[in-house]
Structure formats: C-alpha cells, structure tokens
C-alpha cells in the first residue's frame, strides 16, 4: 500500500468532518428552551465521566432537586453541547407524576467539550449546571 491514498483519505475525512455548532447555535437552542429566561446555578446535578475513552457512547445522568408536587415540580430537563454538529442532545418533559426529576441516557461527543444541563421548573425558573468532558480516541479502529 503506498501513502498517497492514505493521505488523500485523511484529507477527505478532514474536509467532510462536520462543522461544530457555533456558540450562537447553542445560545439559540437554549433560548428556544428557556424563552430567554435567565439561568440560575444550582439544583441540577450532572453525572458524566470527566474522561471518556470513546465519544460514541457516553453514559450520563441528570438529577434535579425538586419536591415534585402538583404545586412545585420540575417540568423538563434539557441537555446542550458546544461542539457536536448540533447543540441539542435531548429534551425530556414530564410532571409531578414522575415522582423524581431524573433522566439518564447515553450521548455522543464529537470531541472534548462542555455539556450544559438545564432544568425548567413549574414556577417558570430555570436552573443549570455544566461539566467539562475530555474525549480520548480509540486506537485500532476499523478502516
């Protein structure tokens, strides 16, 4: 095998690599969720590994402090990212019947970046937290 096709392949992969979402994209996605309301720090915990061996499947869990009563509950949890091609990850909607405000899933991370978790409350307030995740790459991939 000579190096030329390899190199060409690498270049092709580079040019085809999807552009990451811009900060404006993420801000717009966030605004669509909050309607422009301010984010307050706290009440939200985001459990995601700080170091990820493969960005294809990253386990995470969001837990929101809320009494989950008819009068006072969490109505939604949304996750956003900075550097995947699109800023949205998942938006979950529920109500007091959930009993607890929790969501766990497996997400993709195109590269190392910050993940933002936002909770919407029945009183119209929005709470958030974020976490930095470093993605390392698998060796010996299939090609």
């Amino acid at each position: 095998m000579n190096r030329r096709p390899l190199l060409a392949g690498a270049l092709l992969a580079l040019t085809l690599r999807p552009a990451a979402a811009t900060p404006e994209d993420e801000a717009a996605a966030l605004r669509a969720f909050t309607g422009g309301a301010a984010l307050r720090e706290g009440r939200v915990a985001l459990d995601i590994p700080p170091l990820v061996e493969n960005g294809n499947t990253v386990p995470l869990k969001v837990t929101v402090q809320s009494p989950m009563t008819a009068a006072d509950h969490c109505t939604a949890i949304a996750l956003f990212n900075e550097k995947n091609p699109q800023p949205q990850v998942i938006t979950a909607r529920f109500g007091p019947r959930a009993g607890r405000a929790e969501l766990a899933t497996h997400m993709r991370l195109a590269t190392s970046q910050k993940i933002l978790a936002v909770a919407a409350m029945s009183d119209g307030s929005f709470w958030s937290t974020s976490a930095e995740v470093i993605v390392t790459l698998a060796a010996c991939i299939e090609s």
Binding site: E53, T136, L137, A138, A139, C140
Partner: peptide, 12 residues
C-alpha cells in the same frame, strides 16, 4: 511488552 502503556490516548 507495552500492556498498561498508552498508544496515542488509548490504554493498551
């Protein structure tokens, strides 16, 4: 010989 070391960022 290299088990436990890294290849790029992956652990061998």
């Amino acid at each position: 010989e290299r088990a436990g070391l890294r290849l790029g960022s992956a652990l061998i």
